[in-house]
Simulated assay, not measured.
Amino acid sequence: MAPEPVMEVKIPPRVDLAEITRSTRDLPPAHYTFKIENFSLLANAKIDNVESGDFQAGSYKWRLRLYPNGNKKNNGDGHISLYLAFSNSNALPFGWEVNVNFRLFVYNQIQDNYLTIQYAKGRVRRFHGMKTELGFDQLIPLTVFNDESKGYLIDDRCIFGAEIFVIKPTGKGECLTLVKQPVIDTYTWKIQHFSALDQESYKSQVFSFGGHKWALLVYPKGNSTEKGKSLSIYLVMEDFETLPCGRTTYAEYMLRVRDQLFGKHIEKKASFHFSNSIKDWGHLNFMSLDDVNALPKGFLVNDTLAVEVQIQVTTVVKEFS
């Protein structure tokens, strides 16, 4: 008996890939511009994505979320991934939904025009409680984006943008710069009369880096569960109240206690998104109090402890209009 014919099944392409169009235009984005300097530092940092601050569009607040090496969880490997996100700071009733038609942009600095990416045929997308982020996993291939001759990344700078067609243009934006290791990048705090300290915690003088004010916070006898066991050290963002609602400042830094005799310093890395709700971050159990107080080890000399912080990378955001 002859075999039965095999029915061919055609698998439709992914909707989000099949219904995307790309074009170029001279006009800049009407609603928001997101400029990034020192892009290579962002691409090599320990974060897989970075967000803009909140911006207003009509009666709603939005953000842009960028994956410099692609959103690998959503088929974005090898591409720049860019999304429009509905901000958590929106106060909306249960069952809310917002329908928008939006475009995202990449500026071509050689051609002086914008690569425009949008859903085809003016497709309207719906934001709601279970879907607060929409955009493009494969905005532009990294091989194209990183090729300076193509014009999208020039002198390590690039510009993205957004238009949301439920509002009038705002023209508001921000410039995100990653600052890495300036000439003077280490702050040293020499804590004298260390063995006589009787307060729970002590804070250093304020110092400036990357457009913000910082300080070191030390718990000589340990903090929380490490009391009586460890030295606790934190980096504090002193001007956290100046951050707009919803915005964070990212920093990568090294905390260090200097060995003043033999140069065998104790150091630990840390990284954090500082905000107006969480202003300090570091190590609860930086090193044991036994090691601190062991005079032959060289950490405590003439009853003085030398604590340092080396801020290696931080973001600097400047608003413009």
Results as ranks from 00 to 15, higher is better:
Leu153Gln: 07
His283Gly: 07
Gln138Cys: 15
Gly246Tyr: 10
Gly298Val: 12
Arg14Asn: 06
Ile167Phe: 14
Val206Thr: 15
Ile80Lys: 05
Arg256His: 09
Glu200Gly: 03
Asp303Asn: 15
Asn44Ser: 14
Ala2Glu: 06
Ser87Asp: 09
Lys229Ala: 06
Tyr253Cys: 11
Met130Ser: 12
Lys213His: 11
Val257Asn: 07
Arg157Lys: 12
Lys168Phe: 12
Val218Leu: 15
Val313Tyr: 00
Ile117Asp: 07
Ala2Thr: 08
Phe272Pro: 09
Glu241Trp: 02
Leu243Ile: 14
Ser89Cys: 11
Phe86Leu: 12
Leu64Asp: 02
Val106Gly: 10
Leu66Gly: 07
Ser277Cys: 12
Glu226Asp: 05
Gln138Asp: 12
Val301Pro: 13
Thr24Tyr: 12
Phe136Met: 09
Leu217Tyr: 04
Lys35Arg: 11
Ile140Tyr: 10
Glu252Phe: 06
Ile311Pro: 14
Val179Gly: 04
Val206Asn: 11
Gly151Cys: 06
Pro5Glu: 00
Thr21Phe: 06
Gly151Asn: 01
His283Ile: 15
Phe34Arg: 00
Ile80Ser: 08
Leu231Lys: 05
Asn99Val: 11
Glu163Phe: 10
Asn108Phe: 04
Ala57Thr: 01
Gly70Val: 15
Ser81Asn: 06
Ala270Lys: 00
Gly211Met: 08
Val100Ala: 13
Cys158Trp: 04
Ser271Ile: 04
Gln312Pro: 08
Val144Leu: 04
Ser275His: 02
Gly171Glu: 03
Ser52Gly: 07
Val236Ala: 00
Asn108Glu: 01
Asp155Tyr: 13
Gly173Cys: 11
Arg22Ile: 08
Leu64Asn: 05
Leu255Val: 15
Lys264Trp: 01
Gly95Gln: 08
Ala270Leu: 02
Tyr234His: 12
Pro28Leu: 03
Ala162Leu: 09
Phe194Lys: 03
Gly70Thr: 13
Ile36Lys: 00
Met287Gly: 03
Gly135Gln: 02
Leu139Ala: 07
Val309His: 01
Ile154Glu: 04
Arg125Tyr: 06
Leu139Ser: 04
Glu51Asp: 10
Trp214Asp: 03
Pro182Val: 13
Phe94Val: 08
Ser277Val: 11
Lys72Tyr: 00
Gly78Leu: 14
Phe207Asn: 05
Tyr187Ile: 03
Val9Ala: 02
Lys190Glu: 14
Ser89Phe: 15
Tyr67Ile: 01
Phe160Ile: 13
Asp239Thr: 11
Phe209Gly: 00
Asp26His: 06
Lys229Arg: 07
Arg25Glu: 14
Val301Gln: 04
Leu295Thr: 11
Ala196Met: 11
Lys72Trp: 01
Trp62Asp: 03
Leu217Asn: 10
Gln56Thr: 15
Thr116Pro: 02
Met130Arg: 14
Ala91Thr: 13
Arg256Ala: 15
Gln312Ala: 10
Met7Ile: 07
Phe274Gly: 06
Val301Asn: 07
Pro29Gly: 02
Ser89Thr: 14
Leu142Cys: 07
Asn101Lys: 06
Arg22Tyr: 10
Trp96Tyr: 10
Gln192Met: 14
Ser89His: 12
Thr24His: 05
Ser149Ala: 14
Phe272Glu: 05
Pro169Arg: 00
Arg157Gly: 03
Gly282Pro: 13
Gln310Met: 14
Gln118Pro: 10
Asp156Ile: 15
Val206Gly: 09
Arg63Val: 11
Ser288Met: 05
Lys121Ile: 03
Val309Asn: 00
His212Pro: 03
Arg125Phe: 08
Leu134His: 06
Ala85Tyr: 05
